[in-house]
Computed example of a mutant assay.
Amino acid sequence: MVVESDGLLDESSLAAAPLPQEAVRVRLDRPRADDLTDLVFLANNKTVAANLATMPYPFTVQDGRALITKAGVPRPNFALFAIRMKSTGRLIGIARYANVEPGGPVHVGYWLGEPFWGQGLATEAVHSLVDHAFTYNDIQELQGSCRVTNPASRRVLIKSGFQYRDQGMIRSVGAGGSVPIERYTLERAVWKSLKGWGQGR
């Protein structure tokens, strides 16, 4: 959950993808201008920002507009989604995958607004995000990270098939400095074996 990148949307991968990406209770689709109020309200949370790499705190209207605007810029191996409740269509968070560095590994990043924590919604969203990444891109491995103090994000990664790799440090804008993280990986072959996402478990 810590590693997420600037909100740039890869039109080339999304053009071929059916949108929205459906899960049981949530769906992933493109952020829109009319999401701005919900986006700013939920993102302007120090606890959320402190668990991410690049999200500022305070998160302003200008930050929200910039994220939505950047969502239209093409970039390889990248998708940026609004996480929405299927029942209401309202934005409850953001999920994306991207090369943090050009040619580098593809990282997943995600966050939910605090009112939606602890309900399993992030796991649904990450399952859909992973499915999109492997289905519509030639990605062989995804990486994910979480702060060592964030057991909820660790559970999301593990439930999504990611396997522990190592620990390290990363700079978090919201936390105001470097924080220790755990890094996880998910290979395409493992994803294929888990595509039922818990069916039969």
Rank of each mutant, 00 (worst) to 15 (best):
F162A: 04
A122H: 09
G174R: 13
L36I: 05
D166I: 01
C146I: 06
I158N: 04
R201W: 10
F78I: 10
G109W: 10
G109K: 10
L121T: 13
S5N: 10
L91F: 10
P102F: 05
L39K: 01
T149L: 11
R155Q: 14
V3T: 09
E141F: 03
K159S: 12
Q140K: 14
Q62M: 05
I83M: 05
G198T: 11
S13N: 09
K86C: 05
L157D: 06
S178G: 02
A133G: 08
A49T: 05
V126D: 08
I158R: 13
Q62F: 04
L42G: 04
R171P: 01
A50I: 08
G144Y: 10
A95G: 08
E124P: 11
Y97S: 11
Q21T: 06
R201E: 11
N77F: 14
F41G: 02
A71R: 01
F116W: 15
W111Q: 11
T123F: 13
C146F: 04
S13L: 10
Y57E: 10
V61R: 10
D10V: 02
D38Y: 03
D34V: 00
V130K: 07
S87N: 05
Q167Y: 01
T185V: 14
F134Y: 12
Y136S: 05
A189M: 14
V126C: 08
I139K: 07
A133S: 12
C146N: 13
Q167E: 07
L91G: 07
A66F: 00
R65T: 13
L91P: 05
Q119A: 14
E22H: 09
E141G: 03
K86D: 06
H107C: 14
P180L: 04
R75Y: 11
V48M: 11
T37P: 00
T135F: 01
R147Y: 02
M169T: 04
G161E: 09
L112R: 12
L194Q: 10
G161I: 10
V40P: 01
S5R: 06
E22I: 06
M169L: 11
M55I: 08
K70A: 13
N150M: 09
Q163R: 14
M1L: 04
D138E: 15
V126R: 06
W117D: 14
V108W: 07
Y110P: 05
S172Y: 10
R155M: 13
P20G: 08
S172N: 07
V190N: 05
G161T: 08
V179G: 02
A53N: 03
L186C: 04
